[in-house]
Design a protein around this nucleic acid. Structure first.
Lengths: 142, 142
DNA sequence: ATGGATGCAAACTGTTTGCAATATG
DNA sequence: CATATTGCAAACAGTTTGCATCCAT
């Protein structure tokens, strides 16, 4: 498991500061690896570390540029961040519980590249999110 | 090609009003089928139809609920709308030109369903966007 | 005539930025 | 000590909402 430390911050040209370490820490620790900036902020406050929300955004953005963190734009115009363990994966979000499940499917990955090629492009990135509901869920239509 | 008309509005419980017809019209006509609310608004203004931006949002949202229109959340926290021709497809966005290409791949569609099932869920919806660049593009890094 | 629809402006959410104070290397 | 970083508040973009007016039915 990729775990980032001071060295990684330095490598990214970022000074070792309390907010940065705390945020990195939080992302490592977090049971729920996918957090919004707001969540990170709240969590830090709860733990007594009072960083500004603006700093959280700035740090997360810097981490993203540095490749330490991935940003995903889920539905509803808000982003979630997660540590970049450079094991690529996509997401499945349960509409009832909000649970986020990660998955990676080689078949889909391959087809994506092929499709881009077929259209004369090369794949730079992609975003795939499956919105699902529990199979045994209350409303069983179809 | 699915083309909506007054009857469809009525069916959706929506009164036939100028803004609604104009917006529907715009979406039918538009060379670029994918437009943001802001774009729809600007276009309408240019054509001399002065509707409020709020109305554009309201109407597009109603159309979405009515199934006449699809809303996609692209990167950068802004949505684009397109007429729902109920031929499902995903999108490929060129990072250099902004061009949006539609595609639908049965292999991917099938795998998505399977993956959801494998995790004990059933697929409700999904969002797949490929970010691509022209194969012969200037910057050939990697 | 009557309730839905509109336009405007004000409210809101998520995110970014200017700036003076502060902390890191 | 110089400069990157922070916190705060103000600025922003995109979208939603309250309300009085207006229009389709």
């Amino acid at each position: 498991m990729t775990t980032y430390d001071n060295a990684d911050l330095k490598k990214a040209g970022l000074k070792i500061t309390v907010p940065r370490l705390k945020i990195l820490d939080l992302l490592e620790q977090a049971e729920n690896r996918h957090m919004s900036a707001e969540e990170v902020y709240k969590r830090l406050m709860e733990e007594g570390n009072d960083v500004g929300l603006a700093t959280v955004y700035r740090v997360l953005t810097q981490f993203e540029s540095a490749g330490l963190v991935l940003r995903h734009n889920f539905e509803g115009g808000h982003s979630v961040f997660e540590l970049n363990h450079d094991d690529h994966h996509d997401h499945m979000v349960c509409s009832e519980t909000g649970t986020v499940i990660e998955f990676c499917d080689p078949v889909i990955e391959k087809r994506q590249r092929e499709i881009a090629e077929e259209h004369g492009y090369s794949l730079v990135d992609h975003s795939l999110i499956l919105y699902v509901k529990p199979k045994s869920s209350g409303s069983n239509r179809n």
